[in-house]
Amino acid sequence: MYNSKITGLGYYVPENVVTNNDLKEFMDTSDEWIQERTGIKERRWIDPKTDDNTSSMGAKAARIAIERAGLTKDDIDFIVFATLSPDMYFPGGGVRVQDMLEMPTIGALDVRNQCSGFIYAMSVADQFIKTGMYKNILVIGAENHSGGLEKSTRGRGVTVIFGDGAGAAILSRSEEKGKGILSSHLHSEGSHARELMLDGPATGRWVPEIIAENNPEDQSYFPYMNGQFVFKHAVVRFSEAIVEGLEANNLKKEDIDMLIPHQANLRIAQFIQKKFGLSDDKVHNNIQKYGNTTAASVIIALTEAWEMGKIKDNDLVVLAAFGSGFTWGSVVIRW
């Protein structure tokens, strides 16, 4: 069995900054209302005048990660692409990135696990490397939320939360024992699937049906979230996933050097930080300036923390996420 370790990181966010005050132009809200409930001050939304989309943002982040890993596009053996907002219903973003980067005809796998998508994608890539099948895998989390949000007072409970962006990691084979990904832990609870979802267009509620109804009150094609219900489950499952990862490696919460939680809500991250007794320098949050970028949030935050020098050699880094599905999980890394 080989080990897998992160050898390159990169992220990309659109240049267009949308502040809480900007949102007041088309919905009844305020900076105070949004910050109190989410901790978000601003987010990045794709400017329709640019050529940014889910796949192109992923490709931009990937180029940075590949270069930082000291590799070329031809060294990548496989792509794992996590998103809930692909450019088209099918095919997925993985093959689009393969084309954009002019890579050889390597395999590309799309992961649809929403907020925990990057955790799942890392776990999949880790297994491919540990079994010896691949040597270098490009793992991407990317989202274009702004194109599908209901930008009105009716949709503000969801719309104020989400932002656009992408992050990428190169996972490479290593024979160094005790370093790299130590373990990953994945869970789901589908009985709560409808508490955080987008109902259509999908095969269960397809485009002709929606058009035929011509119902302006129909919200099925906008994201829906039962906020309080999700919050209550998130704080429990976040904690369980972190504890599970620590126990699997005979570690304690005091051993954590850096926790990168999914940037769903600053209040959730602060609750988890307090529960585990972690100081501010051991948790990295950036939801304040990027909002919730779903499958991209963990990898953007991880890259940013690394760029800021918050993660050093031999540090114990824990990634954790919870979201739609419900799905949740953690990845424990010895840097």
Rank of each mutant, 00 (worst) to 15 (best):
K5Q: 12
T7D: 02
G8E: 11
P14K: 00
E15C: 00
T19K: 07
N21P: 09
F26H: 14
M27N: 05
W33T: 13
R37W: 05
G39W: 08
K41W: 01
E42R: 11
R43D: 09
T50W: 06
T54K: 06
A59W: 03
R68P: 04
G70H: 02
D75P: 08
I76G: 04
I76P: 03
D77W: 09
I79E: 02
P91M: 03
G92T: 01
G93I: 07
G93V: 12
L101C: 00
M103L: 07
M103H: 07
D110K: 15
V111F: 08
R112Q: 13
S116W: 13
G117T: 10
F118R: 12
Y120R: 11
A121R: 09
D126R: 14
T131P: 10
N144H: 10
S152E: 02
T153Q: 00
R156K: 13
V158Y: 00
T159G: 06
I161P: 01
G163H: 01
D164R: 02
G165A: 05
G167C: 05
G167D: 04
A168E: 06
A169L: 13
S172C: 06
G180Q: 01
I181A: 11
I181W: 03
L182A: 02
S184D: 06
S184P: 03
H185T: 15
A193L: 11
E195D: 15
M197Q: 12
G204H: 08
R205C: 10
P208I: 12
E213S: 15
N215Q: 07
E217Q: 11
S220H: 11
V230G: 11
F231W: 03
A234F: 13
S239D: 07
S239M: 13
E240Q: 14
A241S: 15
V243C: 05
E244C: 11
L246F: 05
E247P: 09
N250A: 10
K252W: 00
K253Q: 07
D255R: 09
I256P: 09
I256K: 03
D257G: 02
Q263S: 01
R267A: 03
R267Y: 01
A269D: 13
F271W: 12
I272G: 04
H284P: 04
N285E: 12
N286L: 00
I287Q: 01
K289A: 08
Y290V: 07
T293G: 07
L302G: 14
L302V: 09
L302C: 13
T303Q: 11
A305V: 03
W306K: 15
D313N: 12
D313K: 14
L319H: 07
A321Q: 12
F322R: 12
S330E: 08
I333S: 06
